[in-house]
Simulated scan of single mutants.
Amino acid sequence: MRESADFVGVVTGDVVSSTSAREPGLVQETLSRVLNDVSCANRSGMVRDFAVYRGDGFQGVVTPGDALRVALHIRMSLLAEFRRWGEKKLDVRMGVGVGRVDALGDSPGRSRGEAFLLSGRGVDELSVKPAEKRRLAVRTPWEPFNRALVPQCALFDALASGWTERQSRAAGLALQECGTERRIGELMGVGQSTAHQHLAASGFWAVEKFIEYYEQWVRELVSGEERSHG
């Protein structure tokens, strides 16, 4: 177990309604594959790769500025798979926590610190009002920033709930920074214009603004904390 006092981003989540899926084993298999792909695609931002626990739960540790982008990459990639199967009830619930870490273990449950506590609280918050179908919560040590993110997370959830398989996949590939729309189209087996249409229909431009806002403020807030304790 590595000792650390640095800031990290912790992404904790689970698959919603996985026990009611037609093939629960396929859900777990797909979850493991997607998490591995996301860890590899975001290698520069990974502190500890994602691991699956308790069947449909997962957790990974990333740099603070990358935490939201990585979380949304997971959601988009899994939604694409669930939509492809026709499993409309399946979704992903995630809590993103940013804070200091006291001890960084090599697997979920073996780490301690503010970031892990906040990430877990985020997941817990999402089950309080199930009728709202909230799927994303971001918690940090900075309460004004947390309050600003609540409506943004809610708007993202509302947007993502209406995505088709192709819209989810196109958005996930764009977050993976696969390059141009031509390249995204090649990976999806469609033309550039069709890839563009999928991204436009998903409202991906708004997702990018959400991520940019988060990245800018997290980096400034973390930098300010480090300077004040330096």
Rank of each mutant, 00 (worst) to 15 (best):
F82Y: 09
F82W: 07
F82K: 04
R83A: 00
R84L: 06
E87P: 00
E87M: 03
K88I: 06
L90G: 03
L90D: 02
L90H: 00
D91V: 02
D91C: 01
V92Q: 02
V92W: 01
R93V: 00
M94R: 02
M94A: 02
V96S: 07
V96I: 10
G97V: 01
R100E: 10
R100F: 09
D102C: 13
D102G: 15
D102L: 15
D102E: 13
A103L: 15
D106R: 14
D106W: 09
S107V: 10
P108K: 15
P108M: 11
G109M: 04
R110P: 03
R110K: 14
G113A: 05
F116G: 05
L118V: 01
G120R: 00
R121Q: 10
D124P: 11
E125S: 12
L126W: 00
L126F: 02
L126S: 00
S127E: 15
S127W: 05
V128K: 07
V128A: 05
K129S: 10
A131L: 08
R135K: 14
R135H: 08
V138Q: 09
T140E: 11
P141Y: 11
W142I: 06
P144D: 15
P144G: 11
F145M: 15
R147W: 11
R147A: 12
V150N: 11
P151Q: 08
P151I: 06
P151F: 07
Q152H: 13
A158D: 02
A158H: 01
A158G: 01
R166T: 13
Q167G: 09
S168G: 08
S168W: 05
R169W: 15
L173G: 03
A174H: 12
Q176V: 14
Q176W: 14
E177I: 13
C178S: 08
C178V: 13
G179Y: 14
E181A: 08
R183S: 13
I184W: 03
E186H: 13
E186G: 08
L187K: 04
M188E: 03
G189W: 10
V190M: 08
G191D: 11
H196D: 13
Q197K: 15
Q197P: 01
Q197N: 15
Q197V: 10
H198W: 11
H198N: 07
S202D: 06
W205Q: 13
A206D: 04
A206Q: 12
E208C: 08
F210Y: 11
I211W: 02
E212A: 12
Y214D: 13
E215M: 12
Q216V: 15
W217G: 04
E220F: 13
L221S: 05
L221I: 05
S223V: 06
S223P: 03
E225Q: 09
E225T: 05
